[in-house]
Design a protein around this nucleic acid. Structure first.
Length: 213
DNA sequence: GGCCAGGACACCA
DNA sequence: TGGTGTCATGGC
């Protein structure tokens, strides 16, 4: 909590997620996979201007048309398919309703989301926390990098293990989880760059991110 | 011109 | 089962 308090005093409340509706949050969660948020905003704006930022709008679009609209977000062919998978899942399993998806126990919702092709643990947790208002902590590259470098967790810790680390130490508080992840991203974007390529430290096994290069 | 960005999945040994 | 390659645009 000391780290959280420090970040909060430094950056202030982040008021996440940057999306106007739960569905927009879910779309953003898929589009931001390994992608700068500024590019995601361009893609979302394209969908808005085309009046297609809806479950039925995306579901009815052809893959190539959807890919063209989300092109600025990168990986557009893959992400178009993932958005179609997600909207198809909502239509087939939840009558096209996010409210229905989030109405059951959130652990069950999480398992359902993870079964959708293209939705991994981080994307599922982001949807749960920021679109569904469920107490599921989100960890990401920044979380692993920052807490790994601080020596608080192993540098190569797995997603679930790292998530359990936070959820085991923090009270199950949606607002806390919401703010903490947002603050970690803020810190990560501003100061925590990837480890530089360095043959010496990598070969010596010293580089905490040697697996990345 | 190279690096990086709020991952996930297919493939292979 | 763990490591590696692939997907791709836009800002700095």
């Amino acid at each position: 909590m000391q780290i959280f308090d420090t970040l909060l005093s430094r950056y202030g409340p982040r008021h996440w997620w940057p999306g106007e509706t739960p569905f927009e949050v879910c779309v953003g969660a898929i589009l931001t996979q390994n992608t700068n948020w500024g590019n995601v905003e361009k893609a979302i704006n394209n969908l808005k201007q085309a009046d297609l930022l809806s479950i039925t709008g995306i579901a009815l679009l052809a893959d190539v048309e959807l890919a063209a609209l989300i092109r600025p977000a990168g990986y557009f062919n893959i992400k178009a398919a993932r958005l179609k998978e997600f909207t198809g899942f909502l239509q087939q399993e939840h009558q096209g309703s996010l409210d229905r998806l989030f109405s059951k126990p959130w652990q069950q919702t999480r398992q359902e989301l993870l079964a959708v092709k293209g939705i991994g643990p981080e994307t599922a947790d982001a949807m749960l926390l920021y679109a569904g208002d469920k107490p599921s902590f989100v960890v990401d590259t920044y979380t692993r990098r920052i807490f790994g470098r601080l020596g608080l967790v192993a540098a190569d810790i797995g997603y679930d293990e790292l998530r359990n680390h936070f959820m085991g130490q923090l009270t199950s508080d949606i607002r806390l989880f919401n703010e903490y992840h947002a603050l970690i991203v803020e810190l990560g974007k501003s100061v925590c760059r990837p480890a530089p390529r360095c043959n010496v430290c990598c070969l010596a096994g010293y580089c905490p991110e040697s697996s990345r290069h």
